[in-house]
């Protein structure tokens, strides 16, 4: 086999190998650059005090797109804002979200103060999200009040279970 062919194949092989790596990195580029971190200040309600410092004027088109799914102004995701699972989000798509230590819960709480089936969050027929305590030992708190009945969740209100705080956001 001629020297030239082998040299071309050698360089060609390296090029193909690197092409694969680059394509693979392109597939996951959203991990590196793509995910936009939006400011919490784009919520219409008054943000919590520490978020107020970071508040900026929201771009007008974001307000439009936020209501794209379902009712205008309805929350689209559930965010864990305090506790061991901080940063975890679950998209709200009309499903019931269960919270608790049981490992088949939607959000598995690793919290000494949580019961195995602690609470659930579900939409009623109008699309309003409801939080219900499932007879937990230490209770579920909406803002400062302990829940006794299924209660609609006002936008931005923190739901506290043990050391974990959950919010619904747009």
């Amino acid at each position: 086999m001629s020297e030239l062919t082998l040299t071309v194949m050698r360089l060609g092989f390296l090029a193909v190998l690197w092409l694969f790596v680059i394509v693979a990195v392109q597939v996951i580029r959203s991990d590196l650059f793509g995910t936009r971190v939006t400011q919490r200040g784009s919520r219409r309600e008054a943000p919590r005090p520490q978020a107020a410092a970071a508040r900026q004027t929201p771009p007008p088109q974001r307000q439009q797109s936020a209501g794209g799914r379902g009712r205008r102004g309805a929350p689209t995701k559930l965010v864990v804002s305090e506790g061991t699972l901080t940063g975890t989000t679950v998209a709200l798509q009309g499903q019931t979200i269960t919270l608790g230590r049981a490992h088949d819960s939607t959000i598995v709480l690793d919290d000494d103060y949580a019961s195995s089936r602690h609470a659930r969050i579900y939409p009623d027929r109008d699309g309003q999200w409801i939080v219900e305590d499932l007879g937990s030992t230490n209770g579920t708190y909406l803002d400062r009040t302990r829940l006794t009945t299924p209660t609609p969740i006002p936008p931005g209100a923190p739901i506290r279970i043990g050391k974990t705080v959950i919010e619904l956001r747009k």
Binding site: V27, I28, S30, D31, G34, T35, R36, V37, T38, R40, R62, S65, A66, G68, R69, T76, K77, V79, G87, T88, T89, V90, A91, Q93, R169, K170
Partner: peptide, 24 residues
């Protein structure tokens, strides 16, 4: 991963990977 969908601008967290396309 979800940033490839049009809902990506709503995520405040980089960990929100739910609701993503399957990418098979």
């Amino acid at each position: 991963m979800s940033s490839t969908t049009n809902t990506s601008t709503q995520h405040t967290s980089t960990i929100g990977a739910i609701g993503a396309p399957s990418r098979r």
